[in-house]
Design a protein around this nucleic acid. Structure first.
Lengths: 249, 249
DNA sequence: CGCTCGTTTGACTGGTGTCAAGCGCAGTGG
DNA sequence: CCACTGCGCTTGACACCAGTCAAACGAGCG
């Protein structure tokens, strides 16, 4: 019933993905949260690691739910979001392979946001107790962990500035370029093309806009030949011009 | 030349403040970051603590500047903000007594935001090396520290949701109520009145609005007798109605 | 074939920004 | 003591970006 994850990913553009589901083959094992646990002694599997597959559109985690460890996105895309009682939703961040859902799960047993899979997603759970034991035995991990926390906050600050100060076209251009840059750092781009499984309404919820307006802005980008996007694949056609719209530098 | 800090604070409403400038008398010493360092062994002064006075409107810290430890606001108000090259500014958070400017300074020697004093402000600096020694000797501090990091991120998530999803009046009402609640937790309110040294343009920069529009919304609140504000003092007249505008609960 | 779902487009509305002028107060200096 | 000045608040007229509503289109799928 579940599609093989590689097959599923081929559907959204044929970009690099995993064939195996153990940490040894996992590219995410050498980045972000997982790297911390594997270096300097790369045991084959980090302590207390168990796995979960989530189908596209399914919730990986729902706000308030009990959590017994830190979850990491090993493969696939997800969004972290806050849901308001009246149905409004704010996407707080996009999670790419290697991203921990939140390092805070180390010290909190429930979180105040939810996480939804955008594609078929493989999630790795590190047991909190095991993690903390590991941490106690290796105090040098503290720095790296603190930097992870800090990176989350810095990203939140940037998003806040984008939403507060930038007009729609600037926001959207920055959003796309940032995704590209994060994918590039993971070796998940092919030149100026990359998988982009987000729907326009996801971009809207992330940028505090409506889907209709996102459509107009992206339509404009397309007409100006800044980018193409279709079938879950984004291709940047005029990088410099898009950076100019994004007001980078 | 510098006004005595108590005198200065009397100017903005006669709300509780400090008379002395040592940790023993500091109410902030038992909250937030400072508490971590003092409990369970409340030595009179935490390791490596030195002090600084900042006049109103002065920058306490400028983005990129070298930083050799964690700074805590002991007394007074400040804002943490990001400055864009074209002059736009986003206030990322309001710092109240007891708030660390950023726990991240434990592991980074420069930060990507600036901090400006709103009132005469007393800032306490904890030396990084001493802090880290303290941390190494007391691993239980890790949890509390992680919770501080997490609280910063949770606040950022809430702000992001406010800016992305809520209209101006809702944002501003929430902002004011949140300030009141944070002051209340510190015993710095008198019933429904409290010091509010922020200018309307500060509120604007925090909420991603213009000062003119903030003025219109606050004028509306005033006309509806939800609140009064003048001379740096805010008084909530109709708490329930304001909470309704803020869409709380 | 006829759903459903996401995209696209158009017409219109409305919330927020922009520009500009005036006001009041506090500080300053003659 | 009183102009003068600067700054923040207030208000009005107007512009415009983005939201709303509605309809049509196309792709995927059962």
């Amino acid at each position: 019933m579940d599609l093989d994850i590689a097959t599923r990913h081929r559907n959204i553009g044929g970009f690099p993905t995993l064939q195996r589901s153990d940490c040894a083959q996992c590219p995410a094992a050498h980045a972000g949260f997982c790297r911390l646990l594997r270096e300097p002694s790369p045991s084959r599997t980090a302590p207390g690691c168990s796995r979960q597959l989530a189908r596209a559109q399914r919730n990986i985690y729902v706000a308030g739910q009990r959590l017994d460890g830190v979850a990491v996105i090993c493969d696939g895309w997800a969004v972290r979001y806050a849901q308001l009682p009246d149905g409004r939703r704010q996407i707080l961040s996009v999670l790419l392979p290697g991203d921990a859902i939140s390092a805070a799960a180390l010290v909190k047993s429930s979180l105040d946001f939810s996480v939804q899979a955008l594609t078929e997603t493989r999630v790795c759970h590190y047991d909190r107790t095991a993690l903390r034991a590991r941490l106690a035995g290796d105090p040098s991990l503290f720095d790296e962990l603190a930097m992870l926390f800090e990176a989350e906050r810095e990203q939140a600050d940037r998003s806040l500035t984008d939403l507060g100060q930038r007009p729609a076209d600037e926001r959207i251009a920055r959003f796309i370029l940032q995704i590209m840059q994060r994918l590039g750092a993971r070796g998940l781009t092919q030149g100026l093309s990359f998988a982009f499984p987000l729907r326009q309404y996801h971009v809207a919820d992330a940028m505090g806009l409506t889907a209709v307006h996102v459509n107009r802005v992206i339509g404009q980008f397309r007409r100006e030949r800044l980018l193409e996007c279709a079938g879950g694949v984004m291709r940047i056609l005029d990088h410099d011009a898009l950076r100019r719209v994004a007001n980078i530098r």
